[in-house]
């Protein structure tokens, strides 16, 4: 009896320890970014583009990266949504045989796991082939590819959770598959679809490896799709690599801004999911 209790307590201790480590890591990361990032946070960091000598500690800010990231992700989100939503809906069993659906889900899982550096390399190959330089358009295309599997998988989950009885009710009234999809499935799966989009946005905005050679980096805010564009993750990366301490500190500021954006996205996702789940039939 004693031995059994002892074993239980021993493993409980290990569990508490592990979980404690995980929470410590999060607290550590957030504290570091907050403390180091706040020290050089200022309005000019957010609203100004780098001035002459910025990378030697001079005046200016990272508005180019903030705006660039928003442009990149906005464009990619729209494109990815246009592709992902139809795919998730077309995976319903009314539209697709089980074999093809299974294969597609497998392919999506593989794409989902594919490292972003591979997307970056592939995107670069395509851009060279098309004669494009590193540009906003290139970055958007690569981010779109990266976001498609994330969005589609989440949406597919949501669509699959719609009870078949619910659809049957619609079919029983003589609706077509398309009308049922619009009237019942999309409505019911809406929170899941939102979550999918936001998940993908969160991944997209933080990814550096995929846009490293496809979006480029510049101190200007891009004026057309064919201009190169700066981005927050790369701002963190490049500034952390410079030898100037002031600039290194600004890497943390960029990280802070990026972290805040990602956290806000996370929270909005949860609130949306909670808000929209009210009209759902369970």
């Amino acid at each position: 009896m004693n031995r059994r209790k002892l074993e239980e307590n021993f493993f409980k201790f290990l569990m508490a320890l592990s979980l404690g480590l995980v929470f410590l890591a999060l607290a550590g990361i957030i504290l570091i970014v907050l403390i180091k990032g706040l020290s050089s946070l200022s309005w000019s960091m957010i609203f100004e583009t780098p001035k002459g000598g910025y990378y030697l500690g001079g005046e200016g800010g990272i508005a180019n990266a903030i705006v660039g990231s928003l442009y990149l992700v906005a464009g990619a989100t729209v494109l990815a949504l246009i592709i992902s939503l139809p795919v998730a809906l077309a995976l319903q069993k009314e539209y697709l045989g089980k074999r093809f659906a299974d294969i597609t889900r497998l392919v999506l899982d593989i794409l989902w796991g594919t490292p972003s550096i591979v997307y970056g390399a592939f995107g670069f190959v395509v851009m060279v082939w098309l004669g494009l330089r590193a540009s906003l358009l290139g970055g958007i295309i690569v981010l779109t590819l990266l976001m498609i599997p994330i969005m589609t998988r989440a949406m597919d989950e949501a669509v699959r959770l719609v009870p078949y009885e619910l659809k049957e009710m619609a079919y029983a009234m003589g609706t077509t598959r398309f009308e049922t999809t619009l009237a019942v499935v999309l409505r019911q799966a809406f929170p899941g679809v939102c979550t999918g989009v936001i998940l993908a946005v969160g991944r997209g905005i933080g990814d550096a490896a995929s846009i490293l050679f496809t979006a480029g980096y510049t101190d200007e805010i891009p004026r057309s799709l064919f201009d190169p564009v700066a981005s927050l993750p790369l701002a963190v990366f490049f500034q952390s690599g410079t030898p100037v301490p002031e600039v290194q500190a600004r890497a943390f500021t960029a990280a802070l801004i990026l972290l805040v954006i990602v956290l806000v996205i996370n929270i909005v996702a949860r609130l949306l999911g909670w808000r929209f789940s009210k009209n759902i039939v369970r």
Partner: peptide, 24 residues
């Protein structure tokens, strides 16, 4: 609550992990 925290951790961009890695 823990799930929320873990989701947040999982969503932190990798450059930030790298940055904290350099520092700590």
């Amino acid at each position: 609550v823990s799930r929320l925290i873990i989701d947040i951790l999982a969503g932190i961009p990798s450059v930030i992990y790298g940055l904290c890695g350099i520092l700590v």
